[in-house]
Write a protein that binds this DNA or RNA. Sequence first.
DNA 1: AATAAAACCGACTGTTGGTCGGTAAATACC
DNA 2: GGTATTTACCGACCAACAGTCGGTTTTATT
Lengths: 196, 196
Amino acid sequence: MAKQAVRRAATTEAILTAARRLFGTQGFAATTMDGIAHAAGVAKGAVYHHFKTKEAVFEAVFDSVSRDLVAEIDSTARAEKDVLAAMVAGTQHYFAATAKGPTGQIILRDGPAVLGWERWRKIDARHFGGKLPRAIAAAMEAGLIARQPVEPLARLLLGAVTEAAVACAGRADIARAGAEYARALRSLVEALRLRE
Amino acid sequence: MAKQAVRRAATTEAILTAARRLFGTQGFAATTMDGIAHAAGVAKGAVYHHFKTKEAVFEAVFDSVSRDLVAEIDSTARAEKDVLAAMVAGTQHYFAATAKGPTGQIILRDGPAVLGWERWRKIDARHFGGKLPRAIAAAMEAGLIARQPVEPLARLLLGAVTEAAVACAGRADIARAGAEYARALRSLVEALRLRE
DNA sequence: AATAAAACCGACTGTTGGTCGGTAAATACC
DNA sequence: GGTATTTACCGACCAACAGTCGGTTTTATT
């Protein structure tokens, strides 16, 4: 077996695990590279051997958190039958998950702050946002909503969802807030539905 | 005349002007307190005498840029007659203005990054977002859209608009992108309009 | 066994946000 | 009008931290 590769993978994972915990609990700014190295049980040099900068570490963590989140959402959305309904359910799960704790800290707070909005959006779109355009296109195809350019509409809806997530994250009664926004979101999406 | 007050105002303004220029052109991270002090023609101590931290300076700058922007938007929106139409026009101006240069850097990039999303949203809402809930409430009152909780819907729309602004900012052909998003936004808002 | 390459170490450096003791200007008080 | 106090301003200094670099150990290649 490629011993070097194993070693590399083990160290990298240790760093990423430690970093994920620290970034999630303390935030990006308050987390130091020395802290990450120490928590991972390696020297700072090792961290810099695997990651070029602190931002690179964060980006890797961000990516992994996103991946996990998407997996959760997928299973939730798959339960619904109507495309529009799945959108609502999926997004609802999205901001329920990001509303609290480490996930929210990494995805919603530091994410855009550290990576810059464009970069953040690109990664976010790769994981999660990519689903929205597809869902919308499908909804048009199925005649559920009026035909129009997909991309702009998807962006607007993604923005709305993200905003809802942030708003929820900032409130004490998350459950109630989540329900409120879910209702508003449903009303927005349903408004798009063609009636005859 | 209160000499001390004048002195204070002059120094503060010099700092703010310098900071606004630097933040706008170089971004928050690349701008140093020494740089601001130097550009303002004062010592670093003076800056810290008037502002507790670097973030405090940024917040003041952010506030002033927002205020200017809102003034612009207001005059644009006032030209429209229908409340929904005014919303569309106003938001269109919003992301046309934030799409390029220093304003976008301060409002859309560093704003959320530096202040944190909640803080950013709060200030943004005070200047700009506060108009949306009012407009929506008015629209309901006028029977243009269905009655429902105002706040959540306003949030969603604000998120959509902000997202559109960011998306525009990231594209080369701003004019075309702006038009696209304006159209999508109109379609979204118009979908809410009650038909009978 | 010898050589090369990759992983890892930790002392060191440069930059920068923020502090602090001190000076000058304005105001309050008698 | 002179003294005390408060406010504006100065700039050397400090601590923290991201990132560097020469050196050491472990694995791969020949």
